[in-house]
Deep mutational scan, measured.
Amino acid sequence: KKTSWTEEEDRIIYQAHKRLGNRWAEIAKLLPGRTDNAIKNHWNSTMRRKVEQEGYLQESSK
């Protein structure tokens, strides 16, 4: 079943993607209940745009 993505999950994906790049299977290990494919789709459909537009979460990672 599809549940919506939480801010916490987005944060984990964002940090992991910065470190690992497009290694979705590795990132998926950090998110129980999410598949690598689901994460990749979420990144491509939602997060990548956010990151590019806003420099997503930069201000809170100090």
Rank of each mutant, 00 (worst) to 15 (best):
K1E: 09
K29E: 13
L57T: 12
G55H: 04
T6M: 03
G33A: 10
E59I: 08
R48K: 15
E8N: 13
T3D: 15
Q58Y: 06
R11P: 00
R34H: 14
E54P: 10
R48A: 12
N37W: 08
H42G: 00
N41L: 11
D10H: 01
W5E: 02
R34N: 00
R49N: 11
K1S: 06
I12M: 05
R49Q: 14
H42T: 00
P32N: 06
I39P: 00
T35N: 12
W5R: 00
A38V: 06
T6P: 02
L57R: 12
H42D: 00
E59N: 15
K2T: 15
Q53V: 14
Y14H: 13
S60W: 07
G33P: 02
I39F: 00
D10V: 05
K50D: 03
S60G: 14
L31R: 00
S60V: 13
I39A: 02
E8Y: 04
A25H: 15
N41M: 15
G21L: 02
K62H: 04
A38L: 10
M47T: 08
W43M: 05
R49A: 14
K29R: 10
T35D: 15
T46C: 12
S61Q: 15
N44F: 12
R48I: 06
T46F: 07
W24D: 01
E8H: 04
T46K: 10
E9L: 03
L30W: 05
N44D: 15
I13H: 00
P32F: 05
L57P: 13
L30K: 10
I13D: 01
E59G: 11
I13L: 11
Q53F: 06
S60M: 07
M47W: 04
Y14M: 13
G21R: 04
K50N: 08
T3C: 07
I13R: 00
Y14F: 15
N41Y: 04
R49T: 14
K50A: 06
M47D: 04
I27K: 00
W43V: 06
A25L: 07
K62G: 08
E52H: 04
N41C: 07
R34W: 04
K29D: 06
R11L: 10
L31V: 09
Q53G: 11
G21D: 04
T35F: 01
P32D: 07
S45N: 08
T35Q: 08
N41G: 11
N44Y: 08
V51E: 09
N41I: 13
A38W: 05
T35K: 07
K29G: 05
E26F: 02
Q53L: 11
Y56E: 15
K62S: 08
T3H: 05
G33H: 15
Q58M: 07
K1G: 11
S60R: 09
I13T: 03
W24A: 03
A25S: 10
S45E: 13
K40Y: 06
E54H: 07
E52L: 07
R11I: 05
A25K: 09
E26G: 02
G33C: 08
W24H: 03
I12S: 03
W43H: 14
K1A: 15
E7L: 14
I39D: 00
D10E: 15
W5Q: 02
A28E: 05
S45Q: 15
E59Y: 04
I13N: 02
K62W: 04
Q53W: 05
T46V: 13
A28S: 12
N37Y: 11
G33Y: 06
E59K: 06
R49L: 11
N41H: 15
E8T: 10
T46Y: 14
K29I: 09
K2D: 15
T3N: 08
H42E: 01
L30E: 08
L57E: 13
E8S: 12
I39E: 02
R34L: 04
H17D: 02
K40F: 04
W43T: 01
R34G: 01
K2S: 15
W5V: 02
L30Q: 10
A38H: 06
N44A: 11
A38D: 13
E7T: 02
T46I: 13
E7D: 13
G21F: 00
E8I: 08
R49D: 15
T6W: 00
N41R: 09
S4V: 13
L30Y: 02
Q58D: 09
V51N: 12
A25Y: 08
V51D: 08
K29S: 14
G55A: 10
E9P: 01
L31M: 05
T46E: 14
R11W: 09
T6R: 05
E9F: 00
N41K: 07
L31P: 02
S45F: 06
Y56L: 14
S4C: 15
K2E: 10
Q53N: 15
Q53T: 15
R34M: 02
A25W: 06
V51S: 10
N41S: 13
E9T: 01
Y14V: 11
I12H: 02
S45H: 13
Y56M: 13
S45P: 02
Y56I: 15
V51R: 10
T3K: 10
Y56A: 14
L30I: 04
S60Q: 10
K62F: 10
W43R: 01
E52I: 05
I13M: 08
E54C: 09
Q53R: 15
N37L: 14
W43Q: 00
R48F: 14
I13K: 01
I27S: 02
K1H: 07
N41T: 15
M47N: 08
E54W: 09
P32A: 04
A25M: 05
R11M: 10
R11H: 07
L31N: 01
Y14Q: 13
D10F: 01
V51F: 10
R11Q: 12
T3E: 15
M47L: 15
A38G: 06
M47Q: 05
Y56N: 15
K1N: 15
T3Y: 10
G33Q: 05
Q15L: 11
L31E: 02
Y14L: 13
I12P: 01
M47Y: 03
E54K: 11
G55W: 06
K40L: 12
M47C: 05
K50H: 08
W24N: 04
L30S: 06
H42Y: 13
M47K: 14
I39Q: 01
W43E: 02
I12G: 01
A38C: 13
Q53D: 07
W24F: 03
A38F: 03
S61H: 06
L30G: 04
Y56S: 14
N37K: 06
S61D: 11
E8A: 15
S61E: 15
Q53S: 12
A28Q: 11
N44G: 08
Q53H: 06
S60Y: 07
I12A: 07
E7W: 01
T6F: 01
P32T: 07
T6N: 06
G55N: 15
A25N: 11
N44T: 11
A38Q: 13
Y14D: 12
E7N: 03
K62A: 15
R11E: 09
P32L: 04
E9K: 00
E26V: 02
L57F: 08
L31T: 05
I12T: 07
P32G: 03
W5P: 03
I27G: 01
N44I: 14
Y56C: 08
L30D: 04
N41W: 07
Y56T: 11
I39C: 10
S4K: 04
M47V: 13
S45M: 07
H42N: 00
S61G: 15
L31A: 02
R48M: 15
G55L: 05
Q53A: 12
E54M: 10
K2Y: 15
N44S: 11
G55Q: 08
V51I: 11
W24R: 01
D10G: 03
N44P: 01
L30M: 08
R49H: 15
S61A: 13
T6E: 04
E59F: 03
